[in-house]
Amino acid sequence: MTETVLVTGGTGYVGGWAIVALLGRGYDVRTTVRAASKEQSVREAMGERVGFAIADLMKDDGWDAAMAGVDYVLHVASPLGDQSAKDPDALIVPARDGALRVLRAATRAGVKRVVMTSAANAASPESYTAEGVTDETLWTVDSSSLPAYRRSKTLAEKAVWDFMAGYDGPTELTTVLPGAVFGPILTAHNVGTTQIIQRMLMGKMPGTPKIGLEVVDVRDLVELHLRAMVAPEAAGQRFLGTGEFVWMREIAAALKDALGPQAAKVPTRQLPNFMVRLAAITDPSLRAITISLGRRNRHTTAKAERVLGWKARPAAQTVVECAESLIAHGVVPEVAS
Results as ranks from 00 to 15, higher is better:
I19S: 03
A252I: 00
I251G: 00
S41H: 02
V320T: 04
V93E: 14
G24C: 10
V93M: 10
A258T: 02
V160I: 15
N190D: 12
V102I: 01
A234D: 06
G260L: 11
F163I: 08
R249G: 00
G169K: 09
A279W: 05
H299L: 08
A304V: 06
T175E: 04
V319M: 05
A105W: 04
F52T: 03
E321Y: 06
K153W: 09
L173Q: 03
A159N: 02
V181G: 02
P184M: 13
A323V: 10
L293D: 07
P232S: 09
D217W: 01
A105S: 15
R108W: 07
L221S: 08
V266P: 02
K210Y: 00
L177H: 12
S337C: 03
S152W: 05
A280R: 06
P184W: 13
G294P: 04
T11V: 10
E131H: 14
K311R: 15
Q317A: 15
L100P: 05
G207M: 05
R113M: 02
Y128L: 13
N121A: 13
K210L: 11
K153V: 00
R295P: 00
Q83E: 11
N121L: 15
W247N: 06
K158H: 13
A235T: 07
R227V: 12
A123D: 07
K86G: 15
G15W: 10
D162H: 12
V335R: 12
T8R: 09
R295W: 08
T2N: 15
T318A: 04
G12W: 00
Y72G: 04
L23S: 06
V218S: 06
Q262G: 00
F163T: 06
S41M: 12
G192N: 10
R34S: 02
G166A: 07
P209F: 04
E250L: 03
L186C: 07
G132M: 12
V335L: 04
G12M: 11
V331M: 05
A53W: 06
Q83I: 13
V222S: 00
A21W: 05
A36H: 10
P125Y: 01
N190L: 11
R108E: 10
E126N: 03
S325M: 07
D56I: 04
A180V: 05
I211S: 03
K256E: 10
G9Y: 01
N121K: 10
R277G: 06
M46I: 05
A85D: 10
V266D: 09
H299G: 02
E305N: 07
K204W: 12
M46T: 01
